[in-house]
Design a protein around this nucleic acid. Structure first.
Length: 286
DNA sequence: CAGGTC
DNA sequence: ACTGG
């Protein structure tokens, strides 16, 4: 495959929906502007759009097309995955509504910190918080088409930053979580690679050992950055969906929903989670 | 109250 | 608990 050059690159993307993938809440920093998405991959600013079965992108620094494919998980057999989770009428409708949604392979460190910041917080506020922290502590400022993108701060930087700096960004009570977890993770070389090598349960246990990381955030990190597709993160939206579609008004706990999701949908429960998330939110916001 | 956690 | 869409 030809290496990326300055200007516009085009790559094939079958069974893919860029909009669904970037607006389903799995990743925080992508923004749409004039029909194109802007974000960062490997600390390069990217502008990207979909035209039929191709995606067109340009970047602030050269990026291999293979890397773009990897980031959007275009190599996995989405059709096979969707067939495996298509077990009832509810998920079936969710799949038909958002077909082409793929789970992104995020940077683990950024994913972990971002989801720590998400706890007991609302989405618009999480977004501005992440942008402020990147503007303050990101190492680089990538420019593309006159727009600047601050890279996400490294764990080392976050762990050495004084509390006041993080507090000023609006992180509130999450400041000690961020600092302590950043310190602990960056002190072990290859922490995330080690977790990738573990099974779902063992990797989850390691994550839950970190400050500010509980069941839900651990599942997000496992699913969105460590390739554990059986993870089924249960946030308030997924709880609403599972209660409404599968538990029919019965009282349930977050644990009930999570274990139901993993057992009902199986090996690729994480994909079911994302489709349900989009589906239930589209119902409430219509 | 809000993509939970301690 | 922080804090503001």
């Amino acid at each position: 495959m030809a290496p990326s050059r300055p200007g516009v690159n085009s790559i094939k993307a079958e069974d893919f929906d860029l909009n669904a993938t970037l607006s389903c809440g799995q990743v925080f920093r992508w923004r749409i502007h004039d029909g194109r998405w802007y974000g960062l991959i490997d600390n390069a600013a990217i502008r990207i759009r979909q035209i039929g079965k191709r995606i067109e992108y340009s970047s602030s620094r050269p990026i291999e097309p293979e890397r773009i494919r990897g980031y959007f998980n275009l190599g996995v057999d989405l059709d096979g995955i969707l067939k495996s989770i298509d077990k009832d009428k509810h998920i079936h409708k969710a799949i038909s509504g958002f077909r082409g949604l793929r789970i992104i392979r995020q940077e683990p460190a950024e994913c972990l910190i971002s989801y720590i910041l998400s706890s007991n917080n609302n989405i618009p506020r999480i977004n501005t918080l992440i942008e402020r922290m990147s503007a303050c502590f990101g190492e680089r400022n990538e420019k593309l088409n006159g727009v600047s993108f601050h890279t996400f701060p490294t764990l080392k930087r976050l762990s050495s930053e004084c509390e006041d700096g993080l507090k000023a960004c609006g992180a509130g009570f999450r400041v000690p979580y961020v600092k302590e977890t950043a310190r602990k993770v960056s002190s072990e070389k290859g922490f995330f690679d080690r977790l990738k090598g573990l099974g779902y349960e063992a990797a989850k246990e390691s994550l839950i050992g970190l400050k500010g990381v509980g069941d839900k955030i651990a599942d997000c990190v496992l699913l969105f950055s460590l390739g554990k597709n059986e993870a089924f993160p249960v946030d308030v939206w997924i709880k609403r969906a599972v209660d409404e579609f599968y538990f029919k008004g019965k009282k349930s706990t977050l644990r009930d929903c999570a274990s139901f999701g993993r057992e009902h949908f199986g090996e690729y429960a994480g994909y079911a989670q994302e489709y349900l998330y989009c589906y239930i939110r589209s119902q409430k916001f219509q």
